[in-house]
Design a binder for these strands. Structure first.
Lengths: 144, 144
DNA sequence: TTATAAAAAGATTTGAATATCCGAATTCAT
DNA sequence: ATGAATTCGGATATTCAAATCTTTTTATAA
């Protein structure tokens, strides 16, 4: 469903939301260390998120990343679209060429459409603020 | 969501269902030609489906593949499980290690669970017989 | 019984996603 | 100013799914 890249992006963004706004900036090393993700790869991903205005980044000592807007205003849908593009939200389930033409939908087309809409809605409804809240209210210590 | 391999498998199985039971066996060349899929790759896939009792295969002249049971008795769920395994039906949406342990579900866990169940239900409810019927009832000529 | 047509099986290649590396640019603190 | 810490950007390496190739096995038909 989601690429590794998207998954990492989401987890990193949630991590940032968890520590926002008390801390302003967090560096790659800390994030990748806490989430147990490969640092150089995560760096690339955050770079893309920054270029797409979901993150602010600053270089130099005490540099790092911070959410570019209020955590409650960033949805998983935005993150996924930036990283993976729109494919999961509009591609034919079984990759039939003619499914995109008029009058020849694939046999799963309409049945899948409602599921696809559910998926899209799920991602659109989840924002980093809410997810961070959920984590904070959990009993056990949370290891992202 | 689905691997190419699964998509090809599904399309080939639907193709067989469309021509069953009037024709008994169909060869790789015909299927790959009609569906515009790479023949050697499709051969591998059908091999796996045959090994897992979803297809019958016979070698030699006039050999080929046929559905191992009535089209209405083969669901997409079975096909996907044979090819891709169970991952899409049980993996954590964001691949969090702790999501499989007690008390530390990922923040998307419960929200995703219902969507995942929808997906599973969709695949379990679709059988090759029904899909083939749908195609036959379409107005335009259908190019799988 | 032999030639042929097909699938099976295994080895290899390709390509895209994933991951790493390194030099450049930027910022901060001294 | 200088050095150190950090992200940036481009190039490179690795891995795995996807695709191909080659040889073997089996079945059919002449």
């Amino acid at each position: 469903m989601l690429s590794n890249t998207s998954k990492y992006a989401i987890r990193a963004m949630i991590y940032l939301a968890l520590h926002t706004p008390s801390v302003k900036k967090i560096g790659i090393k800390q994030i990748s260390g806490e989430l147990d993700l490969p640092a150089p790869f995560l760096a690339k991903i955050l770079q893309v998120l920054a270029k797409n205005k979901l993150l602010n980044s600053s270089k130099g000592p005490n540099g790092g990343f911070s959410l570019a807007k209020d955590a409650s205003k960033i949805t998983l849908y935005e993150i996924i679209r930036v990283i993976d593009g729109n494919d999961i939200f509009d591609q034919c389930l079984i990759s039939m060429r003619t499914c995109y033409e008029e009058g020849t939908p694939c046999p799963m087309h309409f049945r899948y459409e409602s599921v696809r809409n559910e998926i899209k809605k799920m991602f659109q409804e989840q924002n980093l603020g809410g997810l961070a809240e959920d984590i904070k209210s959990q009993e056990k210590i949370f290891a992202l």
